[in-house]
């Protein structure tokens, strides 16, 4: 199925947010995730399953002033 991750289209099999983050090696990092413009709490990663057309934003901290 197709989802949008950080503005880019990705084709992935059906899976949870937790598994997706693991597949892109994002899980050990201090990140925040927004699914269809709503913040997803870390406790919800395992119980939230991605669906066709979902929009995912994955952010972290970078240098800034």
């Amino acid at each position: 199925m197709k989802i949008i991750v950080n503005g880019e289209e990705q084709i992935i099999p059906a899976m949870s947010v937790h598994d997706f983050l693991h597949s892109i090696e994002c899980d050990p990092m201090p990140i925040a995730v927004e699914l269809n413009r709503s913040i997803l709490k870390k406790s919800e990663y395992r119980t939230t399953f991605l669906a066709e057309g979902d929009q995912l934003e994955i952010v972290w901290f970078v240098g800034g002033g």
Binding site: N6, M29, W60, F61, G63, G64
Partner: peptide, 11 residues
Amino acid sequence: VAVRRVNISDR
């Protein structure tokens, strides 16, 4: 610090 998208292709 600033908040920015994680670079998915370069991890």
